Amino acid sequence: MRLLVIEDNRQLVANLFEYFEARGHVLDAAPDGATGLHLATSQAYDALVVDWMLPRMDGAEVLRRLRQQHHCETPAIMLTARDELPDKIAGFRAGADDYLTKPFDLPELEIRLEALLLRAHGRAQRKVLQVEDLVLDLSTLEARRGGRLLHLYPACRKLLETLMRASPAAVSRGELEYSLWGDEPPEGDLLRSHVYELRRVVDGPFERKLIQTLPRVGYRLAAVAGERLDG
């Protein structure tokens, strides 16, 4: 099991690492909500362990953005000292799959995580996005067009997923940058470079172009006739 722990209590994080790594699990940690959101959307995890009270972005907002903006369905359990019923309701509504109040026993957290994974695997998570003859398998991360395997590096694959989920609607440059880098985009116009590479792989070998540039708006992925527009 690969876990992302989004928690600012260093001692608790150390305890979690010691316990779970001794049982063969792999853990990453984020000390604040913004970092946690970035890791959760840029890397693959089996489950998330999310504290509520976090610097930069609280755990409820992290889950809300994961579910609503990034369509991330990774199972998540919220750890918090907030044990009132309204808090629990708010946590579940934000996107938590389970809710465990502090203090807690580590074996209980482990069994709850195992239960989350069993339920997730039982939902037949193999999912496929398709626009025209372009197919992205979210379970294998394979992209194909006309049956031909497309070789995409991770940033391009993330852009493709974002565009395919929205298709045929437009996606703003800001939304695409956020999907790649969260609240901390790099200097320069790296998005343009990534779109250029994505377009080279997805559209270059094919007569029918799919990736469109919308001036002063962003991009969209939909079938169009004619020449490819410049990025």
Rank of each mutant, 00 (worst) to 15 (best):
L159I: 12
V135R: 11
A223S: 03
K88H: 01
A94E: 06
Q11R: 13
A225V: 09
P168K: 13
S172N: 07
A124Q: 07
D97V: 14
R199M: 01
R56S: 07
V201S: 00
R208C: 11
L117R: 14
Q69A: 11
L116K: 14
L152F: 07
Q11E: 15
G182N: 06
A169L: 10
F17Q: 06
P55S: 15
R126I: 07
P75D: 14
L163E: 13
K127P: 06
E175F: 01
G59R: 00
V131Y: 06
A115E: 11
L116A: 12
R173Y: 05
R216T: 03
E61Y: 00
P168R: 06
T41C: 13
F92G: 05
G33Y: 14
V135T: 13
E161L: 09
R173T: 08
F206D: 01
G91K: 10
T80G: 02
R199H: 05
F20H: 02
L27W: 01
L198V: 06
P55V: 15
L191Q: 11
L198S: 06
M78D: 09
Q212V: 07
A124V: 01
L134T: 05
V50S: 04
I77W: 07
G226D: 13
R173K: 06
G188N: 05
L37K: 02
P75W: 10
A34R: 14
R144G: 04
F17R: 09
E7C: 04
L190S: 14
P185I: 01
G174L: 08
L66H: 04
R23I: 04
E184W: 13
E110V: 05
H38N: 05
L39N: 09
L129H: 03
A29N: 06
A94F: 12
Q11C: 08
R123T: 06
A30K: 07
T101V: 15
A96E: 12
R10I: 04
T140P: 07
A155F: 12
E108Q: 15
R67I: 03
A40F: 05
G174S: 10
Q130C: 08
D83G: 15
E18G: 08
A120Y: 14
T41M: 11
L149C: 04
L152I: 07
R119C: 01
Q43P: 02
L176I: 08
N15M: 14
Q125K: 10
E187L: 01
F17M: 07
D230P: 00
G147F: 12
A47G: 03
D83E: 03
L149R: 10
D97T: 15
D189E: 12
D98E: 07
I211L: 15
A225P: 03
V224R: 09
E132Q: 02
L113F: 00
D230C: 00
R200E: 09
M53I: 14
A169D: 10
I77G: 02
P185V: 00
G204C: 05
R165Q: 15
R148T: 12
R23C: 10
A169V: 02
D46N: 15
L180F: 13
M1C: 10
G24Q: 09
Q68S: 15
T41D: 04
A47T: 01
A169Q: 13
R2V: 05
P55I: 15
P31W: 08
L129M: 06
P168V: 12
I89C: 04
N15F: 13
